[in-house]
């Protein structure tokens, strides 16, 4: 792992990427957002389903607190 060195002299050069910054960072940024939302969608869906089922069960059995 001795060959692992940071390739840029400073943060500005890292962001600019020799003029390719806008392409690289937009590709990474959009991908991160899309991947995050695709991973969170089933979590939200499951939570909603469980909540709906809980309220229906309460309604059916009629022993829930109002």
């Amino acid at each position: 792992m001795s060959d692992l060195v940071f390739q840029f002299p400073n943060v500005n050069a890292f962001l600019a990427m020799n003029g390719h910054g806008v392409y690289v960072w937009s590709a990474y940024g959009i991908s991160a957002l899309v991947l995050l939302s695709v991973a969170l969608a089933p979590v939200r869906r499951r939570r909603k389903l469980l909540a709906a089922m809980a309220s229906r069960l309460k309604h059916e059995t009629g022993n829930g607190t109002p």
């Binding site: 060195v5 390739q7 890292f14 990427m17 020799n18 390719h20 392409y23 690289v24 590709a27 990474y28």
Partner: peptide, 20 residues
Amino acid sequence: LGFAPEDARQGNSYRIIYIH
């Protein structure tokens, strides 16, 4: 993004490969 070497022909744009 930060530690892989720059590509000789494509420069830094090639870093998109790590997602693509």
